[in-house]
Design a protein around this nucleic acid. Structure first.
Length: 330
DNA sequence: ATGGTTTTTACTGCGTC
DNA sequence: GACGCGGTAAAAACCAT
């Protein structure tokens, strides 16, 4: 120990080269000795640091945490997140490999069971049945979650939306809302609802464009699911479309801010009710860009908002009228 | 199913680059 | 002359009843 320190210090004084330095630090790490005071080092796995027990010097940060990188809150999530799950469970149900417990309370020799044994078998039967039915739902769920994942990524929706969509889907599954409806349709509806709830809405058309089912079915299923699950989905706030439109059109924050002002003024003037939120947002963005002298054409806006130019024209006249009276002017 | 409202489609005229 | 914009009429879509 003392020898090592002295030789190291000697090296340092005699002008070390780079290679020697890195080699030396690697050695230090291996030997678990603090470079400052020579005390022994402790690994703090939770913070991913290696710390000196004597002087508290942090030798190494961002170490490798060898624990799981996720947490599972229930068994379903554990299944979903596990990276070692065998695919055989998927096949079991279909291949008839699952266990069946006979209903006769007889043992292998045909003798009747004692009351104690009978009760035990009843419990086993119950749980076996629970797990079996759960398995079929599980497979259903996997497919749906895959779809949600795919569509969310195609629509550029963030993690939390996928999370919410999954939760909604599971609830639908749990409440037996699936029979008579396609997995696709319900999955899409869940995603649509989740996007709205997270204030990053996508229009029905946008959602339909990445889904395997048509818009009408999505709308129908969505209504049904939303009603059955009593999802509280507030009418979409037009302002929640603004950031996306602005960024897709390459407009500045200034435009974004003004768009919100205009929408606020329009809401106060009471001209927003009954109008499509997308149309209002698109019109506000267009108007705001005009006021801020940033060049955008109506057709460009209609493109990103997937709304007709006519609607933009109609709305933005109304908006400017309302905005002008409320003090937002050019 | 129906009627009222909103949005879309399609077309036309006007001004500008 | 193409393009952006505005307006209009009729059709389609939407929504509550």
């Amino acid at each position: 120990m003392t020898d090592q320190r002295t030789t190291r210090e000697a090296e340092r004084e005699s002008g070390e080269d780079e290679e020697q330095e890195t080699e030396e630090s690697a050695e230090r790490e291996r030997q678990q000795v603090c470079p400052e005071c020579g005390g022994s080092l402790l690994e703090d796995e939770e913070h991913g640091e290696t710390v000196c027990s004597e002087c508290g010097l942090v030798v190494e940060e961002d170490g490798i945490d060898r624990g799981p990188e996720w947490r599972a809150f229930d068994s379903r999530e554990q299944d979903q997140k596990s990276r070692v799950g065998a695919p055989t469970t998927n096949m079991m149900h279909d291949k008839g490999l699952s266990t069946n417990i006979g209903w006769q309370d007889k043992d292998a020799y045909g003798n009747s069971l004692s009351g104690r044994q009978r009760r035990k078998m009843q419990r086993l039967r119950k749980w076996n049945e629970r797990f079996r039915t759960r398995n079929s739902k599980e497979r259903n769920l996997k497919q749906a979650l895959g779809e949600i994942e795919r569509m969310a990524s195609a629509l550029g929706l963030p993690e939390n939306v996928r999370e919410t969509a999954s939760v909604i889907y599971r609830r639908a599954l749990g409440e037996d809302l699936l029979p008579g409806r396609s997995i696709e349709g319900v999955a899409t509806s869940a995603l649509y609802a989740a996007a709205r709830q997270a204030n990053t809405p996508r229009s029905l058309d946008e959602v339909a464009s990445v889904s395997r089912v048509g818009r009408d079915e999505i709308a129908r299923t969505y209504r049904y699911v939303a009603r059955e699950l009593e999802l509280e989905v507030a009418p979409t706030d037009p302002a929640s479309y603004v950031p996306r439109f602005c960024s897709e059109l390459g407009l500045t924050e200034e435009v974004e801010r003004r768009s919100r002002e205009l929408l606020g003024a329009a809401a106060d003037a009471g001209i927003t009710s009954g109008k499509s939120p997308v149309g209002l947002a698109a019109a506000a963005v267009y108007a705001a860009a005009l006021l801020a002298n940033e060049r955008v054409t109506q057709s460009e806006v209609s493109e990103v908002a997937s709304i007709s130019e006519v609607t933009i024209r109609n709305r933005y006249h109304e908006i400017l009228e309302a905005g002008g009276e409320t003090g937002v002017e050019a």
